[in-house]
Design a protein around this nucleic acid. Structure first.
Lengths: 150, 150
DNA sequence: GTGGATGCAAATAATTTGCAGCGCG
DNA sequence: CGCGCTGCAAATTATTTGCATCCAC
């Protein structure tokens, strides 16, 4: 799937959600949505601001913060706190996934594990709970072919 | 196991870890360790400071911050970011557990799930990683006996 | 004794907000 | 053509740090 299509889809989905919530589809929001749609990583607000400004230099940091808060409430993005410091975002909406954080490189890798999620639901039920959402972050290091433990 | 014993154990463990790292066992650190040992919940820095001051009013907020950073590095506590805002802490060292967060009450409940952890290790290995640590937070709501979905 | 630890206050970092003007619906 | 949205700057919140003093080793 070409980027343009993915982006277009993301924007229409955005349009629908904004309309539903009564919020307006403004130029800054379009730009930020596009930036999010094109992001393959998990950028923080500063980075989103940088990328948004590359498209429209008039966009302020405050607007990026406000927009991320709105998008999070609308379920358009997910906020993560992988480490201390700035929060990082990714466009949600697609199928759920969790994250590996490579401790050495700082890299964040997405992965799917339906088996784990099934177990979670089971454990939650055992405790009398229904799952609304979850966050699983696994801090890892790469296993080298010739690795002797550490 | 009575609280006094648990607390005493925690303090001796603390003493050992501080000695190993070359850090000093000062009065504020003793107090904060005791507060952590007696905590059944997951207090934030302000709350720890409040409790520490109840024992020794001279203890400053800065020292609580510095001590929590030290304790985290020594593996004495775990830092959590259950929600935005202040970080929350718990005394680590015991067997690992994860957390339910009751979205309605804000309550944090600990749970064990070795099955889930086994699966995590398997999934990580599948991706070429070795697990160093992990964080699983499940946001839940209580299932009422007569509950019709929402 | 002496270097690490503390308290205090001031400094940073991360995020939010008040307000006047602008533009989407 | 009004009310929500924006930019800017100032305000808040969370955490860190410089410095003089203090005390654990």
């Amino acid at each position: 799937m070409p980027e343009t299509v993915a982006t277009k889809t993301a924007v229409s989905k955005l349009e629908a959600k904004l309309k539903d919530s009564g919020a307006r589809l403004t130029a800054p929001r379009r730009v930020i949505a596009r930036v999010l749609g094109e992001a393959a990583d998990h950028p923080d607000v500063e980075e989103l601001h940088r990328r948004a400004q590359a498209i429209d230099p008039g966009i302020s940091l405050a607007t990026v913060y406000r927009t991320m808060r709105l998008f999070e409430q609308l379920g358009i993005v997910e906020r993560h706190a992988f480490s201390a410091g700035r929060a990082r975002y990714e466009h949600g909406g697609e199928e759920h996934h969790d994250h590996f954080v490579d401790v050495k490189s700082g890299e964040v890798i997405e992965f799917h594990a339906p088996e784990i999620e099934a177990l979670q639901a089971e454990v939650a039920a055992r405790h009398g709970y229904r799952i609304l959402d979850h966050r699983l972050v696994i801090y890892v290091e790469r296993i080298e072919p010739s690795d002797k433990k550490r």
